[in-house]
Design a protein around this nucleic acid. Structure first.
Length: 540
RNA sequence: GCCGCUAUCGUCUAACGGUUAGGACACAGGAUUCUCAAUCCUGCAAUCGGGGUCCGAUUCCCCGUAGCGGUACCA
């Protein structure tokens, strides 16, 4: 057993270089001056090498809530596991989020750059800070060095499993928690590796209640694990970094994934031992997918759709993806969107208590629908601009066409875009190539005519074409044009539909196309006549 | 195994303890249109199972069951 004095000595022995105290640390970060109700939120992903769809989801939620409460959003990087560190990990997150229009008020803005006064905003640069608090805990007897080797840890785990006990380092299994100062000194002199563990005083038999902003009131058991606070390499575990970073940064609501929920008792004990006021939690359920009839978390390893790049490369509009994500967050978003067509999604009042408590399935069909509606809400020029951005990266050939024929393309994207009945056939920007095909000979030449001879005999087709060519002109309204077609149908004794069908195939090679009159108007009289004649030649 | 959270149409979800259990997406049918899309109408389709409490339970309680998460010197 160690005395109170022993612990003070021990803390000095363990952290001889640390001169700061928790009090002096707090002095460095003044209290934030914010309006009533303002929330300070931090989004704290780990740099694991790619931008997860969940990262966009959480990043967006945090920034929206901060903005709506006139608070502060912070992007912090949790890179305390150097085994998992990946090159450019930070940039992938920073740039990826920025690309999605998700901007933070404070935090990392580049690999080694940040903005804000509450940094550093990357945990690997905060090592000295964690030591200050670790030293403080040791001096108070709330933490201690543990010299157990991996093998020893493994052994106790096996023994616990055999005896059907809870596994882990707690109570009598935590063999170093009460060792004498002499024992510790001896190990230190031998330069043995050690970790700093929490000296837990919790009782697993006791429960306590806690409010989670998403889950509501929950009942949890107290923590009794002597969790690792500082690893042998001097890096903190997440558990230790979390209270310190969030308190020092003045966070008012901790948002994080559901996987942390089970650690709440540990974190509560840490807040108490550190003398911090508990920050409220909101635990978000993960995005799921189904596989073989069972649900599971979307994982990058197995699921390509977990990577945001998957949607980008397929040409999904980012805004549409965000809207879909918002709809997962609060399912009344879609209704709100319809009622507030002009408003930006960021104005939607997200409510924490409206989040799904269990995991939501990621539904690509619904995503398609929302993207389709999103694109339908844009002007032709906006479609052009967004499509161009995408195509410049993913389809150079189409990008050239777009750049060289700006006005023409805008006309094409404008087909059936005016008025109440907007054409909704673009889900993602990869679909626009299909839209353009009939308007550019270079692409048009490469597609085959659809065969309608089974529906309308060749001789009849020929007759229709010949007669139509004689009266062909492009009037200035659909009505006039269609009147002409109708008149011709009457004269020939055929159905209007048949004439339209023949013309459609002759002009677009397809049996399905956007409004024929608008297509003809855009193509122009010469081009249409040329195509009609060409098809006539083919039918014979 | 142990601990915790969760449970409404296929999916996302709504419903002060009293509703015909509502909406959206998907699907099917119809209307409309020069085709397709769009639009409009209609249909299909759910309270996990069992016990309580209550005049009355999707809602509250208990027991099962299932799903998810945790059970690391990973986050």
């Amino acid at each position: 057993m160690r005395t109170t004095e022993d612990n003070v000595v021990l803390s000095q022995l363990l952290f001889p270089d640390v001169v700061e105290t928790p009090q002096s640390m707090f002095g460095k970060y003044p209290k934030r001056e914010l309006p009533d109700g303002a929330m300070v939120l931090r989004f704290a992903p780990s740099p694991t090498g790619f931008l997860h769809i969940g990262t966009v989801y959480m990043g967006m939620i945090n920034t929206i809530i901060a903005k709506q409460t006139k608070g502060v959003s912070i992007l912090r990087i949790e890179d305390t596991d150097k085994n998992r560190e990946i090159e450019n990990g930070v940039m992938t997150i920073v740039e990826g989020l920025r690309n999605f229009g998700i901007d933070f008020d404070e935090g990392m803005i580049g690999d080694n750059q940040s903005k804000g006064e509450y940094g550093p905003y990357i945990q690997s640069k905060r090592l000295d800070i964690y030591k200050v608090f670790a030293k403080d805990l040791v001096s108070k007897g709330y933490a201690y060095p543990c010299f157990m080797t991996e093998q020893e840890l493994e052994n106790i785990r096996k023994e616990q499993e055999e005896k059907k006990l809870r596994t882990g380092c707690y109570g009598k299994w935590a063999t170093w928690r009460d060792r004498s100062l002499e024992d510790v000194k001896a190990m230190l002199e031998k330069d043995e590796k050690f970790v700093i563990r929490l000296y837990s005083t919790g009782d697993i038999e006791k429960s306590f209640n806690m409010m989670d902003l998403i889950k509501g009131y929950v009942t949890l058991r107290e923590n009794d694990m002597d969790a690792v606070l500082l690893k042998s390499d001097g890096f903190p575990t997440y558990h230790f970094a979390h209270p310190i970073d969030d308190i020092l940064m003045g966070i008012t609501l901790v948002t994080r994934g559901d996987e942390w929920f089970s650690s709440v008792p540990l974190h509560v004990e840490l807040f108490q031992k550190l003398g911090f006021k508990q920050i409220p939690y909101a635990h978000f359920s993960p995005l799921m997918k189904t596989e073989n009839g069972s649900k599971r978390k979307l994982s990058k390893r197995k699921d390509p759709e977990a990577d945001v790049q998957y949607y980008i490369s397929k040409g999904y509009p980012k805004e549409g993806v965000k809207e879909y994500l918002l709809n997962i967050a609060n399912s009344n978003f879609y209704d709100w969107k319809i009622q507030n067509p002009g408003k930006s999604s960021e104005e939607f009042a997200l409510r924490l208590d409206k989040f799904n408590k269990a995991g939501s399935l990621f539904d690509i069909v619904k995503l398609d629908d929302m993207c389709k509606n999103y694109i339908a809400s844009l002007s032709a020029e906006q479609v052009y601009n967004q499509a161009l951005t995408w195509v410049q990266e993913y389809n150079k050939e189409v990008a050239d066409i777009l750049k060289e024929n700006k006005d023409y393309c805008i006309q094409i994207f404008g087909i059936e875009r005016e008025g109440p009945k907007v054409r909704k056939d673009i889900v993602k920007y990869s679909d626009i190539k299909e839209q353009l095909t009939i308007f550019f000979d270079t692409m048009f030449e490469n597609i085959e005519y659809e065969d309608i001879s089974g529906i309308i005999e060749s001789t009849k087709q020929k007759e229709i074409l010949e007669k139509y060519l004689k009266v062909f002109e492009i009037p200035n309204s659909v009505e006039t044009w269609f009147e002409g077609v109708k008149k011709l149908a009457e004269e020939m004794g055929v159905k209007t539909g048949e004439i339209a069908m023949v013309l459609r195939v002759a002009i677009t090679k397809k049996t399905k196309s956007p409004d024929l009159y608008q297509v003809i108007s855009i193509l122009g009289e010469d081009k249409v006549r040329e195509r009609l004649e060409k098809y006539l030649g083919k039918v014979i």
